[in-house]
Design a protein around this nucleic acid. Structure first.
Lengths: 113, 113
DNA sequence: GTGACGGTTCGAAAATTTTGGAACCGATCA
DNA sequence: TGATCGGTTCCAAAATTTTCGAACCGTCAC
């Protein structure tokens, strides 16, 4: 078959920005969506597999969830690494603290409502 | 003439959310735009009249600038008060510190690029 | 009054983001 | 090999945000 690598649908390692290159406005934007922020709050307690990243309460289509993960990953908020058949999602807490000291603590410490 | 109060184009006092009601995601969203964030950084040095809120470098149409001010004001990031013929724009630093401790400091302290 | 000034609101077009189904991929297991 | 599983990417539609000209408003100077 041709076009072996035409799509990235099954790429093992997704791109993650370097800590030194994180852009503040991208991080703020990624965190400005309520469902993404809620996920980040949950990730503060530890890594989750993608399926567990579903918003508490309702189910969301896989593609929608994947898009939110992409937004967070490309901003540098989370890490998304393959682990066998699934993927682990974790908060890039140390990297965020290094690049934007105090920001994540302030966000996580803020009233949820 | 009829319809005295049909529009708000000349309203003296614009609405500002109460400190206790500020919504984190709204604040993060307001700050996630580069030109708005740059303005907030400038406002950290003190109030500005609207005309002085123009982005350093280029000129932007008045209506565009006004829209950005509205986004920041409705999120509770800035205050916009009439003063004679003009208006003064100021950062709601104390209110933000009260509702989201550490957030503004982290944002202002973050590397600009 | 009349006009200029500083600035907001209205309205519509352009750009971006969000959403979700369908196709796809690699890993795993039979 | 083949089928299933967990998840991403592709694509297009819907929703939201951004942009900006035009209309408008209140203040001040004349």
């Amino acid at each position: 078959m041709f076009n072996y690598y035409r799509t990235m649908a099954g790429a093992r390692d997704l791109p993650h920005p370097d800590t030194a290159n994180l852009v503040l406005t991208d991080v703020l934007f990624a965190l400005s969506d309520p469902s993404r922020l809620e996920l980040v709050r949950r990730l503060a307690s530890g890594p989750l597999e993608v399926a567990a990243c579903q918003p508490t309460g309702g189910e969301v289509p896989k593609s929608t969830l994947s898009h939110h993960l992409k937004t967070l990953r490309e901003a540098g908020v989370i890490r998304n690494v393959p682990q066998g058949r699934q993927r682990y999602v974790s908060l890039r807490r140390d990297d965020l603290d290094e690049r934007f000291p105090g920001l994540l603590d302030a966000v996580l410490g803020a009233p949820a409502r």
